[in-house]
Amino acid sequence: MYNSDKVIPGIIIFIIFFTIPMWLNLGGAKAIPRPELPKEEKNCVESKEYMRAYHMKLLLKWRNMAIREGKRTFVGADGKTYLISLQNTCMKCHKSNEKFCDRCHKFVATHPDCWHCHIAPEEVAKLRRWQNGNR
């Protein structure tokens, strides 16, 4: 083999580099996350299974309906009508972003940017603290 002194170390570096996440997480088996579910309300706008698998699609659909189509109401699986709003509908039952959304998202390392703009329930207190000068 030509240039084996360069090719073989190259391949080794490549393999190590691409398997870094595996090595870093080795041995640290984490518990499956348990997002905190609302206590008072048992039914979401769609079935539990649908929400688990497709909540992101529903949210995208909602945001397009509310902003681009001017439709503010959504008829859920139970036939009830809901106001389309992340802050005023979803987060009224799921009262905490950290205890609900983040638990799974952190585990699977996805970082949706919803809360860059939207104000999460627990953020309100933090923002009010800021206004009082305690940054």
């Binding site: 802050q87 703009c117 939207h118 104000i119 309100v124 923002l127």
Partner: peptide
């Protein structure tokens, strides 16, 4: 969000 004088929790910021 760092410059919000008042927070309206019913409406998003940018």
């Amino acid at each position: 969000k760092e410059y919000l004088k008042h927070v309206n929790p019913e409406y998003p910021a940018r």
